[in-house]
Amino acid sequence: MKLCITKRYREKCVFDGFALEIPDGEVTCILGASGVGKTTLLHCLAGLTPFEGEIDGKTENVGFVFQEPRLLPFLTVEENLTYVGANEDEIRTALETLEISAYAKRYPDTLSGGEQQRVALARAIVKKPPLLLLDEPFSSLDLPLKLRLLSAFKTLYQSYTPTVVFVTHDIDEALSIGQRIVVLKDGKAVYSARVTPCTYGENTTEKQSVLQAITQ
């Protein structure tokens, strides 16, 4: 997937002809400081905000995991999955993949934050969309829960290898799942490299390079 976009919020220009290539079937992690346009990029890809330019690739059918679970509070877990158009078989498979079949009849407010985010992940993959967008989905979770969900994410990614754009500000998180790392700064990609996913927290040379790109 290729994109070239310009996005302005009133006077502020977030992207001015920003070009990026997102490899199909791979996990691209977008890193960068707050306010560089990471979330805006996802919103452009999902069609949530208007922009100038073009995106060359399939973006009609996307799965989106937001920072918060964004589940409908008055629907059960399975009803939340039905809400996005999934059928019974798809729901059963998605819940099994994320090991949350036991929560099917429960309401979101009876689940913990991590469990709700698991449901949000299940909702994102239930229709097996070719493009999966994740906006700092684990940023509010503690480390053990984050590691469990990263593991769950890897399982679901391997289940059908969609194109993934994963926005995060956690370098370790990006390096543990990403096959390509992009660092955004001032509306440009200041760093872009292919990497091999490593263990969370592992001190690699890529980590030093990414850290340098973010802080320079």
């Binding site: 999902a46 069609g47 949530l48 009609e60 059918n61 996307v62 799965g63 989106f64 937001f66 918060e68 964004r70 409908l72 629907l75 009803e79 809400y83 996005v84 158009g85 909702r123 967008l133």
Partner: peptide
């Protein structure tokens, strides 16, 4: 935020009206 989520998942307006 729920409306934005519905838009991202292209939930039909009729479903949004009845379920949200």
């Amino acid at each position: 935020k729920l409306l934005q989520m519905s838009k991202a998942y292209r939930v039909p307006m009729s479903v949004q009206i009845t379920k949200l």
